[in-house]
Amino acid sequence: MDDQLMTERLVDAQDIKITARGVQVYYGEKHALKDVDVDILTNTVTAFIGPSGCGKSTFLRCLNRMNDTVAIARVEGDIRIDGEDIYDSRVDPVQLRAKVGMVFQKPNPFPKSIYDNVAYGPKIHGLARTKADLDGIVEESLRKAALWNEVKDRLKESGTGLSGGQQQRLCIARAIATGPEVLLMDEPCSALDPIATAQVEELIDELREKFSVVIVTHSMQQAARVSQKTAFFHLGNLVEYGNTSKIFTNPDDPRTESYITGRIG
């Protein structure tokens, strides 16, 4: 625990990357997320935990405006990244999503080669001038995603031919390749076996050096292992937000305690 406390003290000194104030989300008539206030720090892993349907994925999808692609979703409130309101009409969601990368629950590599999967983002955002630049970005992203050694000899093969864990790391490499500042992960390990999960978790810890990572997870062990900050959602409310060690050892709210001890879920 001492190590954990050390990192938390370091984290507390970090700058705030994202501020969310009074965020409300409606899916049609349904009020899915009620009045959420959260500050997400740089170079920190923040975990969102809570039972299914509590709004944690919904909130995650607000942070890169993915809810815009859902016709019936409506978002209110104020979300700022580096002080800039991302729901301002001048902000192009397309550019926002290049800055806020996302990794999904199920590995979803495109039916293209491994190389083209990683090069997809840099190509559409024009990040590489030459083929050599692009090669460099692809290699660096794959290295950061701890996948390079496994795939360097078969970059031209289809990304869908990899194993589940490799596919998820490919999706992480793909998200890293656009040079994001924040990485959102929506239950990135729920479709993976324990070994692949361990690899991805190790990777998340390394990614913290470069990005803010926000991870939605159903596994409280995972939240405890990888995150420094934890937010507990319940029935569309943000119940408690704080240092991970505090949430898991000495929560303020009785609902949080009930959830982490397995009495509600």
Partner: peptide, 23 residues
Amino acid sequence: SLRDGSYGLGATKSETVRQVILP
């Protein structure tokens, strides 16, 4: 999930159609 993946990388609708869905 392929559409989400593409939008999540900051692709526009037409880029998604041309580069992910049509192939």
